[in-house]
Amino acid sequence: MFLQILETVSRWAIPFLLLTVPIYGFIKKVPVYESFVEGAQEGFTTAIKIIPFLVGMMVSISVFRASGAMEYLTQILSPVTNYLGAPAEVLPLAIMRPLSGSGVLGMATELMRVYGPDSLIGRIASTMQGTTDTTFFVLTVYFGAVGIKKFRYAVVTGLTADITGFIASVYICNLLFK
């Protein structure tokens, strides 16, 4: 029931915004079309501005992944994850998660194809996917958009959130589904 409401809301949210915001603006005597174009112009320049930041980040992540360095990291970390009750198969997912959104979706899909979506591995992979975020992508894009070069402690909080999300996903899935 709750889920159905949520699904309906997310299906209607965009059409609703696209209708109500311009009508609201029109009533408030905003030149709606001109304002739209003005805002769209800003969107265009921002999207272009983040290209160098994203190229830099994606190149180093991609080299790290393609070289096989990630598999070594997985092996080094496996005693820690065994202790937490996480199957070894989901560990690469946890390492990739902050780095690459499309990469991790591909890995999660592969795990579900091999082990089935209703296996413990499939459920942990799904939960992690819905819980954690591609922290480095978000930081690169958001800070890049305004030209921030010193991220301060944002990397630490973002990664802590990802690690917490991973541990919590493993814990709750072991508790509910094992």
């Binding site: 915004l17 915001v21 408030k28 304002s35 739209f36 805002g39 769209a40 969107g43």
Partner: peptide, 19 residues
């Protein structure tokens, strides 16, 4: 580029209207 332009366009209307 496309989605950015679309949403920041809509947002500009909302901003100017005080929403």
């Amino acid at each position: 580029i496309g989605v950015m332009a679309l949403w920041l366009g809509i947002m500009k209307i909302a901003e100017k209207g005080g929403l």
